[in-house]
Simulated assay, not measured.
Amino acid sequence: MLTKKQLDLLEFIHKRVQRDGVPPSFDEMKDALDLRSKSGIHRLITALEERGFIRRLAHRARAIEIVKLPESMGGVPSAPTKGFTPRVIDGPHPSPTQPANILPEEVILHAREIPVMGKIAAGVPIEAISHVDHHVAVPGQMISTGGNHYALEVKGDSMIEAGINDGDVVIIREGRTADNGDIVVALVEDQEATLKRFHHNGRSIALEAANPAYETRVYPEDKVKVQGKLVGLIRTY
């Protein structure tokens, strides 16, 4: 999912390539989107590249190639990417005489309680989490067998484009390894914990936000420890 600014920029680049055969300059992009500086364009370009819509080609001026377009611009729907995608678990609906805030008995019977370990930052890393705050009931479909699970309350908005909002409760399967693209709880320098998308490249690990307002943070691989992978999400309205 793209933000309005990202979509506006992609559309502007696409139209200019179709018209002139070459993408616009960064100054032209800045003026077209009415931004104050080219740094904002750099962030939008990086976000579009990370999401696979464009590719920057090395050693060439105005070296931007459009790889795909979103459905709103006539593009083909993308195949699901590896990693977490929020999903709704359907359950029995309450009858007209049943209060909406009371779960049906069959849902309650299949729920499991897991510990809520406190808050996790979806933004700048916060202090590491190591205590049980309370417990939360989770639908059994959300928890895989053969693993320990815990929950964390999200603070911050850096993962909003992955469908994770401030105040959500995320369900984490405990583990020490992750694949590129997984959303993980990462412990940075044994002091701070954060929720980010994981990328391991050589001897470094990048922790990537899902919000162009936040920079991707890169650390030496020995400074980051995976604490678990995201497997579910609970939102209260």
Rank of each mutant, 00 (worst) to 15 (best):
V184F: 08
T236F: 14
K119S: 08
A58F: 13
V132E: 00
V124L: 13
R36Y: 07
L69I: 01
S78I: 05
A209P: 02
V17L: 07
V185D: 14
V138G: 03
A122R: 01
Q98K: 00
E65P: 00
A100L: 13
A209D: 02
K5E: 06
V136W: 05
E208H: 14
F198R: 05
I66Y: 02
K155N: 13
A193R: 09
A162K: 06
P86R: 12
E105Y: 10
L187Y: 10
E208A: 11
L44M: 08
R87L: 14
H199N: 01
R19N: 04
H149N: 12
H134T: 15
E28N: 09
P115R: 14
H131R: 12
K223L: 09
V188M: 06
V22M: 10
D34L: 15
T46A: 08
G181N: 05
P212D: 08
R43D: 09
L48R: 02
A111S: 13
A193F: 13
S78G: 01
V154Q: 01
K5Q: 02
I171S: 15
H42K: 04
G118Y: 10
E106K: 09
V124K: 11
L187T: 15
N180H: 12
I102T: 00
D31M: 06
K229E: 07
V17I: 12
I205A: 05
I126K: 12
T145C: 04
I41M: 05
N201R: 07
I13A: 01
I54W: 03
M159G: 07
I64A: 04
R51H: 11
S204Q: 06
M142N: 10
S37I: 06
M29G: 04
A111V: 02
E153M: 09
I89C: 02
N211S: 08
T177Q: 08
L10N: 02
T177M: 03
R112D: 14
S130K: 12
S25I: 08
Q18G: 12
S204T: 07
N101K: 04
P23Q: 03
R60Y: 11
V188Y: 02
V132F: 00
V107G: 01
N211Y: 10
P92Y: 06
T216Y: 11
L69S: 00
Q18D: 09
P139A: 10
I172F: 13
K82T: 02
R217F: 09
E215T: 04
F198Y: 10
I143Y: 00
P24Y: 15
P24E: 14
V218M: 01
K155T: 13
G163K: 05
A193L: 13
G52W: 03
V132S: 01
K155R: 10
A209T: 00
I41H: 03
F53T: 01
T236P: 06
L57N: 05
K5A: 08
M29D: 03
L10G: 00
D8Y: 12
A137K: 14
Q191F: 15
